[in-house]
C-alpha cells in the first residue's frame, strides 16, 4: 500500500515538474522575454527532440539502421498541409492525419524491408526517402519542386512541448514494457531472440511504425511553423542530421537523443555568425566526440531519478 502511494507521489511530482517547465516558458513567451530568434530555436529544438528520440527507437533500440526518417517527416508534413491548408480542417485533424499517413508509410515500407539486415536495410530505407522526395517533386497538386509556400502558422509552444513530451513518454514506456525487452533482444542477437520465440519481424515493424509516426508528427509541426515546405527540405542530408543526433547522444539512449538534439540545435544557432567556419567547427566537434566518446555522449545509459539518487547518495 505504501509502495503504491509512493509511486503515485513520484508521478505527481513529475507531472508538476513538466507543467512548471511548460508554464515558465509559456510565460516568458507571452511576456515577450524571448526574441524571435530564440522562439525559432525553441521550435527547432522540440522538433529535433521528437525526430532524434523516434529515430533512436529504430536505430538505437531495435538496432535497425534506417536512413529514411526524413521521408516519413515529409509524408507527415505534406499530408497535414493538405488537410489544414487545402481542405481547411482544424489543426488537430492535420496532426492525426499526418501521423497516420506517416505510420501507414512506415508500415508499407517496413513490412518488406525489415526482413533485410544491416547494410541492405539502410540502402532500402535511404531509397525510400529519395522516392518520397522525387514523387513529391512530380505531383503538381503540391506544387512540385517549388513546394507549398504560405502555410498557416498553427504550431505553438503548447503543441511543440506536449508533442515532444508525448514522444518521450511513449517511447520510454514502450521500452520499459515486455515489448521493449523483446525489441532490445532483437538488437542484441536476432537469431537468439527468434529461437526464444520472439516474432522478430513483428516487433521490428512495430518499432518502425511507431518511429515513423513520430517522424510524421515532427513533420506536421515543422510544416506549420516554417511557412514553406518543399521536397528538397526532406532530402537524405536531413536524415543524416537526425542520425548524427542519435549517434552523438548514444545509440540506445533516449536521454542521449534528447541531449544531443538540444545540443545540435544550439550549436547551429551559435555558429550562424561564423559563416565560413561553420561546417568546419561542426564537423570538428563531431569528430572529437567520436574519438573520445565512440559510444556517444550517453552510451546506452539513461538519466533518471535513480541516477540522481545514486549520485547524491540518497535512498534508491
Amino acid at each position: 500500500m505504501q509502495e503504491k502511494s509512493k509511486s503515485w507521489l513520484k508521478f505527481l511530482s513529475e507531472v508538476i515538474l513538466l507543467v512548471l517547465l511548460f508554464t515558465l516558458v509559456q510565460y516568458a513567451l507571452s511576456a515577450g522575454l524571448v526574441n524571435q530568434s530564440y522562439q525559432i530555436t525553441l521550435t527547432s529544438m522540440c522538433i529535433n527532440v521528437i525526430l532524434a528520440v523516434s529515430l533512436n527507437l529504430i536505430n538505437g533500440f531495435t538496432g535497425q539502421l534506417s536512413l529514411g526518417h526524413a521521408g516519413f517527416m515529409a509524408v507527415g508534413a505534406y499530408a497535414s498541409v493538405i488537410i489544414t491548408n487545402f481542405m481547411d480542417l482544424p489543426f488537430i485533424i492535420g496532426i492525426l492525419g499526418g501521423c497516420l499517413a506517416a505510420g501507414i508509410a512506415g508500415f508499407v515500407v517496413g513490412v518488406p524491408t525489415l526482413r533485410l539486415k544491416g547494410d541492405y536495410l539502410a540502402i532500402a530505407t535511404l531509397a525510400f526517402g529519395e522516392i518520397i522526395r522525387v514523387v513529391l517533386q512530380n505531383i503538381d497538386y503540391v506544387n512540385g519542386p517549388a513546394g507549398i509556400v504560405g502555410i498557416t502558422k498553427l504550431t505553438t509552444w503548447s503543441w511543440l512541448y506536449w508533442a515532444a513530451i508525448l514522444t518521450i513518454l511513449v517511447i520510454v514506456n514502450l521500452m520499459n514494457s515486455s515489448y521493449g525487452r523483446a525489441i532490445v533482444s532483437i538488437r542484441e542477437d536476432e537469431v537468439a531472440s527468434e529461437l526464444m520465440g520472439i516474432n522478430t519481424t513483428g516487433y521490428k515493424v512495430l518499432a518502425f511504425v511507431i518511429g515513423a509516426m513520430f517522424a510524421g508528427l515532427a513533420g506536421v509541426l515543422y510544416a506549420h511553423y516554417f511557412y514553406i515546405i518543399k521536397p528538397e527540405t526532406f532530402n537524405f542530408l536531413k536524415s543524416f542530421d537526425m542520425l548524427v543526433m542519435v549517434v552523438l547522444g548514444g545509440l540506445g539512449s533516449t536521454t542521449g537523443a534528447v541531449i544531443a538534439a538540444i545540443f545540435i540545435t544550439f550549436l547551429t544557432l551559435a555558429l550562424q555568425k561564423y559563416a565560413a567556419m561553420r561546417m568546419v567547427i561542426y564537423s570538428l566537434i563531431l569528430i572529437i566526440v567520436m574519438i573520445y566518446r565512440p559510444q556517444g555522449l550517453m552510451g546506452t545509459k539513461e538519466l533518471s531519478r535513480k541516477t540522481f539518487a545514486r549520485i547524491w547518495g540518497g535512498k534508491k
Binding site: N35, Q36, S37, Q39, I40, T41, S44, Y222, F226, Y227, I228, K230, T233, T268, L269, Q272
Partner: peptide, 13 residues
Amino acid sequence: ADEAMSVSAALVG
C-alpha cells in the same frame, strides 16, 4: 528555408 528564417530572426534582433 528553416535556417534562412532563423538567421533572419537573429538579424532582426
